[in-house]
Amino acid sequence: MIVEKLALGRIKLGITAATQEEALKTVGQMLIDSGLCKESYLEALVKREKEFPTGLDMGGFGVAIPHTDVTHVNSSGLAMAVLDKPVTFTLMGMDDEFVEVKLICAMAIDNPNQHLDMVEALLHLLRDKSFLNDLAEARSPEDFLSIIRAKENSNAN
C-alpha cells in the first residue's frame, strides 16, 4: 500500500517553485529530513531528471516520479508535493515533449528488486485522473493521505 510508504512529514501541499529544480529540491529534501535519503540525493535527483526525465501525462494531469541511484538512499519510501502552479517537466522517454506537472512523487528506492510492488502500486494509483484532481485539492496532508487510503481500499475491494 502506498499509504504505508508515505508519512505526514513527507507530503507538502501548495508549494511554489519557479523551476523544476526548485520543485525537485523541495520534494527531495523531505526524504532527506526523514532519514530515508542521504544528503547526496538532491543533486543526484536533479541531475538524473535532466538526463532521464520522469514526467508523465496521466490523461491531461501532469505527474513526475523522480528517483535516482540506490547509493543515495538509506531505505525505501515516497515523498509527494502538490504544486501551487504547475512546473514544466520533460516526458519520460522523450527529450522534446513536455508536460505541466502538478504533482511530484519522489521515490526513494534502495533495492530495485524489492520495491517493484511500491512502484507498480504508485503507477496504478496515478492512472486515475479524478483521483489526481482530488489529491491536488486536498486541504491538508492528513486529507491527502486519507484520499489515498480511500482509493487504495476501494481498489482492493
Partner: peptide
Amino acid sequence: ACGGAVATSTVAAN
C-alpha cells in the same frame, strides 16, 4: 532498459 535500472525498467521487465 531505462535510465538507471532502478524503477521503471523493473516495472517494464516484469
